[in-house]
């Protein structure tokens, strides 16, 4: 157990250091979601009163696509020089690698969200009518939901042809309940029409179920060359 946390922490530090030096994932994610915001602003009239109803959907769709960019990057880093093999021949627990990658992605995507949300607020002239604090658990749980399965499926799609396309193909169908929860929850808070509690519970359940499944199956996936 001790080594699990030690290796997780070491891997996380290493990933953050690598990301800090190259800034591959963060830059491409930022630029990508910026584009999405601008294109959405053209496609939908952001000044209309009903923008409050669609903003939740737009934000999360933008983050979902941006997250896929980050998720593809995480494992690409391990494939260069086949460093993943060095991990696989070591006695370090597979789940430590998974947790480190998932937490790393969580941090990257959260940073992105923190940077992009003000932009959305400005573009769509949003002001929240419901209890705004509920957006925080929705964002945290929703991001983890995307990232935990995304990390897992990105590892899975390492073993496929055209893996960059494979990831969204595997991830999106499974993520539908989570996306629905995030979008509907955010919309509920923004409009203040109905309570968002259910969505928070839904996201929490989703997170617990799939985090458990990922931890149980990741070792199998990692060693299925």
């Amino acid at each position: 157990m001790n080594s699990l946390w030690a290796v997780t922490l070491a891997t996380l530090k290493k990933d953050i250091r690598l990301e800090w030096r190259s800034k591959d994932a963060l830059n491409s994610m930022l630029f990508f979601s910026l584009l999405v915001v601008v294109i959405f602003a053209f496609a939908f009239d952001p000044l209309a009163e009903e923008s409050r109803h669609i903003a939740g959907g737009l934000i999360w769709v933008a983050f979902l696509f941006a997250a896929v960019v980050a998720l593809n990057q995480t494992w690409a880093r391990e494939l260069r020089n086949q460093v993943l093999d060095a991990y696989r021949v070591s006695p370090a627990p597979a789940n430590a690698l998974f947790l480190a990658k998932a937490v790393g992605n969580f941090i990257f995507v959260s940073v992105l969200e923190a940077l992009m949300t003000p932009l959305f607020v400005v573009f769509y002239n949003l002001h929240v009518l419901g209890p705004a604090w509920q957006l925080i658990p929705i964002a945290l749980l929703g991001t983890w939901a995307l990232v935990v399965n995304g990390t897992f499926f990105a590892a899975m799609s390492l073993r496929t042809r055209s893996r960059e396309i494979m990831l969204p193909l595997l991830l999106f169908p499974i993520s539908i309940p989570a996306v629905l929860g995030m979008v509907a929850g955010t919309t509920a808070v923004l409009t203040g029409d109905n309570p968002a509690h259910f969505y928070i519970v839904l996201l929490l359940t989703y997170d617990v179920v799939f985090t458990t499944a990922c931890l149980l199956l990741f070792e199998t996936i990692l060693h299925a060359e």
Partner: peptide, 18 residues
């Protein structure tokens, strides 16, 4: 099996941790 962006010592320190 090494990370190109890190120095030799940084690389080995990570793998030693494993």
């Amino acid at each position: 099996l090494l990370y190109d962006e890190m120095s030799g010592m940084e690389n080995l320190r990570y793998f030693a941790g494993l």
